[in-house]
Structure formats: C-alpha cells, structure tokens
C-alpha cells in the first residue's frame, strides 16, 4: 500500500481507451486531476483484467477526495471517488 490518508495524489492523465478495448473504473473527468487520499478501502481484484476474464491481481483501492475547482467550469462540488492505486501518482 503506497498512500497514507492525507497523501496528495494526481490521477494519471492516461487514456487507454484510445489504444484499444478496455474496462476502466477511473472516470474521465478525473484524469490528470489532483486529490487527497482519504483512506485505503481494501484490496480488490483489478477490474481492468476481470472484465476480460484475465487473471486479475488484487490492487489497493483508495477513497480519494477532490475539490471542485478545476474539474467543472463554474460548478460542481467536493467529490469522493474510489480509485485503484495504479491510477494514482504521488505529488
């Protein structure tokens, strides 16, 4: 487990959708955005492999908080979203 509660993180600005068939549980609107780890929720089988019936390793899943600024133009609210560890980078 890489991130402790309170860790500042950035969601990878990656778009695997452009490279072929995928099943991604990281919403588009969070790619490249900065947030704060709230807590580790547990380890769960990687949905990106499960969806294609591939052997799936268990990955740490975090609850990550995001401020509305810089996500939606002139609106939004605080966000709390489950994000798998490989999608998070330390900042």
């Amino acid at each position: 487990m890489k991130f402790a509660p309170g860790a500042a993180v950035k969601v990878r600005d990656d778009w695997p959708e452009a490279r072929g068939p995928v099943h991604i549980r990281t919403p588009h609107y969070l790619r490249g955005r900065q947030g704060t780890v709230v807590r580790h929720l547990g380890d769960f089988a990687n949905p990106e492999d499960l969806a294609f019936a591939r052997p799936a390793s268990r990955l740490p899943l975090y609850h990550v908080a995001f401020a509305p600024e810089g996500i939606w133009p002139g609106g939004g609210a605080d966000l709390l979203v489950e994000v798998f560890e490989p999608w998070l980078q330390p900042i």
Binding site: R25, P27, F44, P47, L61, G76, D78, L79, E82, V83
Partner: peptide, 12 residues
C-alpha cells in the same frame, strides 16, 4: 452546506 458527491466507481 458543503455538498460532497460520492461517485461509486469500484467495489464498494
């Protein structure tokens, strides 16, 4: 009031 939107994206 702060609104916090919980996007249920994974296993919970």
């Amino acid at each position: 009031t702060t609104i916090r939107v919980v996007d249920s994206t994974a296993d919970y």
